[in-house]
Write a protein that binds this DNA or RNA. Structure first.
Lengths: 350, 350
DNA sequence: GGTCGCTGATAAATCGGTTTATCAGCAAGG
DNA sequence: CCTTGCTGATAAACCGATTTATCAGCGACC
């Protein structure tokens, strides 16, 4: 059961190990066709496959890509990014070595040096939510930033186009005929870039549609269903003429809170209130009642993109991040505002 | 910027590479204490760290653990198992090589042989939901099954104790005073072992409590909120005397459907209906209104356990799987049945 | 003085490949 | 006949560590 070595193949084929190596690696050489054929056949017969460790020692390529990420566990998004990246690696015969730093900088720098030490052929540095951060020390040139970008540039990076996503969400409501559109923003201490970009997209669309953004319609919520309930409660406390008929929530968890609150208060969605979320969160958005119209985060595509760049399959700009499209997912939580038509069949008046 | 090799250290310390190796590996040898001290100091000064590839070639240990899993992406549970396993690996200075087979058997067998070929020191075979499956060919002895078990045994395995979890859920309702307790079972085509075990736990608890299980209270639902809504509707269509006052749902998605349906129909939870879910699903269970009492799946602990066994840190039985406790998470969706007391302050009558 | 035993350290083999420089053999050309 | 050039293949160095067998030197003992 001992492994077959190159020397075994060489002996069986009546040639030297050098010949076997040259043939199997399709190296430029002057080996005759018959010999090549024979070597290949014998190698196949004995089931030879080169020891990757020995090979790496000499060639300095390991066929592995390091993937360091903060907190794989605490977000449901990680999986899709990871899976996208892993898939590309596998399709190209590479192995991914995964390190979860759990958010600890000292683990992170350890992980980076360990991976560099292990001679990974490339590296992906993934964040579990879109943000801007100082590039960790020790990162090899060409490391790809996934769902984050280094504040000083210098590395390829891919992030969701949250500005365009914010626009798409707002546009969806504007197109449905809404004029009083609220934005429930992320009110957490460490407000991410995504929130700012989405807000900007929302504002620009409103302005372009000739709607004066109303500061009272920009409220903040803790990122949770409870936060969403609080925020919509706050909005509903406004004088009726000022109340929103459409709401764009920073994310689906907040949107879920709005939906729950609406159920509680007998407010119908979308007849009385339209709502657009963000994230297309697995097992949440599609399962709300009604199913939530939302903007999806292209995690799998970002993961694929990052790995493609890491493998050199794709060129990337190191000056500015690649923006990945966030397509809107239309479900059933958006309709025309009540005054535009009958709630039973809104489309009739369109 | 060329890497420091052992020969460099040797030269700087005025000894041979052999000496350096013996010292740094704390090998049994007859090197004097002064020499040891000097070698260590020099190695530290020049920042030497051995090339893991070269070392692996000689020692045949790579410091890596292969982790093959189906579908990392499609379940939110994967992250916690992965993170648990990865954490243990990191704590012990090992690297995990991750392969997601996306459910394809041919990718799986490729992955296994690639990992074996790469000389991983151990292997974990993970499933994204608890199931029994034929052991894939080519798995090295000692491969640890995570969240699944090989149908013929022979490998260490860890799975959640779904029977005990089912008991805990039912017991929670029995203890609250319920006598008419429904089980909304998984109605998908390929019903997993987990469903059967939970059902059995539910039945046994009822029987032990002197409650005759009522076949009408065992219904099936597609695993989704919509499925849950359908199932509770079905249960509510029963004659009032036969209707359940407590519901145990196969999982939180189904439970979420029940909660939504209750909101719609003005049925109060837990005053009019108590509900217990399963999974403690991230971003779902805790965010329902009221927050859902549920049984949690110990994914992180299972991941840790599996890696500990893979690293030889823990002994494991290869004959039967290790059962991991599924603790109940008490939130606010269970209360006494209506007839036991006032809905406003149920505890008064206890 | 020679042998033995012990200490401290090292030379060299080894792991399993890749790669470069070299070699044998043969035909052509001067 | 000797050189040159070409073809087909290989010997040997190399990657960077670990590990075993060996060695030098020295003191003790008979």
């Amino acid at each position: 059961m001992a492994r077959v070595r190159i020397a075994d193949v060489a002996k069986a084929a009546g040639v030297s190990p050098a010949t076997v190596s040259l043939v199997l690696n399709d190296a430029e050489s002057r080996i005759s066709d018959e010999t090549k054929e024979r070597v290949r056949r014998v190698a196949d017969e004995v089931g030879y496959s080169p020891n990757p460790i020995a090979r790496s020692l000499r060639t300095r390529v390991t066929g592995t890509i390091g993937l360091v990420s903060d907190r794989i566990a605490t977000t449901p998004f990680a999986g899709r990014m990871l899976a996208g990246a892993q898939e590309v690696a596998r399709e190209n015969g590479r192995l991914v070595i995964l390190v979860d730093t759990d958010g600890h900088p000292e683990i992170e720098s350890d992980a980076i040096s360990t991976l560099v030490n292990h001679n990974v052929d490339g590296m992906v540095y993934a964040s579990m939510y879109h943000r801007v951060l100082p590039a960790p020390a020790g990162l090899p040139a060409g490391t790809v930033f996934l769902d984050c970008r280094p504040e000083d540039g210098g590395f390829p990076a891919v992030v969701p186009d949250d500005y365009a996503g914010g626009r798409a969400a707002a546009q969806e409501l504007v197109d449905a005929g809404h004029r009083r559109i609220a934005y429930i923003d992320d009110g957490d201490d460490d407000r991410p870039v995504a929130a700012q970009l989405r807000l900007q997209g929302y504002r620009d669309v409103l302005t372009e549609a000739g709607i004066e953004p109303d500061a009272a319609l920009h409220v903040f919520a803790e990122t949770s269903a409870a936060g969403g309930q609080g925020a919509i409660g706050e909005l509903w406390a406004l004088p009726e003429a000022q109340r929103p008929t459409g709401v764009f929530a920073f994310n689906d968890r907040i949107a879920a809170g709005v939906v729950m609150w609406a159920h509680r208060h007998g407010i119908r969605i979308p007849e009385d209130l339209s709502i657009v979320g963000y994230d297309d969160q697995q097992l949440v958005a599609a399962e709300l009642d009604p199913p939530l119209t939302t903007v999806s985060l292209p995690h799998a595509a970002m993961g694929r993109w990052a790995m493609e760049v890491a493998l050199g399959l794709r060129e990337a700009d190191t000056a500015s991040p690649h923006l990945m499209d966030c397509p809107i997912v239309r479900r059933a939580s958006v309709g025309p505002p009540a005054h535009l038509g009958s709630a039973r069949d809104p489309r009739v008046t369109d």
